[in-house]
């Protein structure tokens, strides 16, 4: 039993949902964990705007409550990313992906800037719509194979997963924050407050790396 991510070295059992650690998933998990710890302990940046062609500059005022809320969302995003990295269940993976999408919206929706909030709203609509193909993909996985367990898919004893199910899963993940729908997120980066905004980017990257492994399973 081996997947592209390697042989599971440890399996944690939550009823029918298994959490497993392969060299691939544990690497992604540790990356998400490290960045979440960084988010917890680091002090956020103060964004400075410099007037083009002159010496004028000004630092943006950011309230403490706003930063606290965004840190909370960034930590939640990190936890969701960690869950998505190690879960061994297709439906559970889609849930964690949806959670990453909504926490990304939360990270930037707290910013007091109409432009950023407009972008966050548009991205929120995409993330909301993306849950349709995401969960539909998981449903087709269940219907076609009779199982949602990635461990069972790894064994190769189940019927093959239809291509359309994989495509739905991928477009759902892409809608939760990948290019080309990333453009709305690029606008969000006008929001001050690294490392919180960087968590949006990192979580999307991690989810994408994981979905590549997931679609190659069955």
């Amino acid at each position: 039993m081996a997947s592209i991510g390697g042989i599971p070295s440890y399996i944690l059992e939550f009823g029918d949902e298994l959490v497993y650690f392969t060299p691939y998933t544990i690497t992604l998990f540790l990356l998400a964990l490290t960045f979440t710890v960084l988010v917890i302990i680091s002090r956020p940046e103060r964004q400075v705007d410099i007037a083009f062609g002159g010496d004028a500059y000004r630092a943006k005022e950011i309230s403490l409550s706003e930063m606290r809320f965004r840190r909370f969302m960034a930590i939640a995003c990190g936890l969701a990313s960690m869950g998505a990295m190690v879960t061994g269940d297709i439906f559970n993976f889609t849930l964690f992906t949806a959670m990453v999408g909504i926490t990304n919206v939360g990270i930037v929706a707290a910013v007091k800037s109409p432009h950023v909030q407009d972008a966050a709203y548009q991205y929120g609509l995409v993330a909301l719509s993306a849950t349709v193909p995401l969960f539909a993909g998981a449903a087709v996985y269940a219907a076609a194979t009779g199982s949602l367990s990635m461990i069972e898919l790894m064994k190769g004893t189940l019927p093959a997963v239809p291509l359309i199910a994989k495509a739905m899963l991928v477009i759902g993940v892409v809608g939760e924050g990948m290019a080309p729908f990333y453009a709305a997120k690029a606008e969000m980066f006008r929001a001050p407050g690294a490392p919180y905004v960087i968590m949006c980017s990192l979580s999307s990257l991690l989810i994408f790396l994981r979905v590549v492994e997931v679609v190659l399973l069955g």
């Binding site: 009823g15 439906f91 909504i102």
Partner: peptide, 19 residues
């Protein structure tokens, strides 16, 4: 059998409510 799903679903609702 699917308790972890229940936890994540409730967390998503909580996050949405918090935002």
């Amino acid at each position: 059998t699917r308790g972890l799903d229940t936890v994540v679903e409730a967390t998503i609702l909580f996050i949405a409510f918090a935002i």
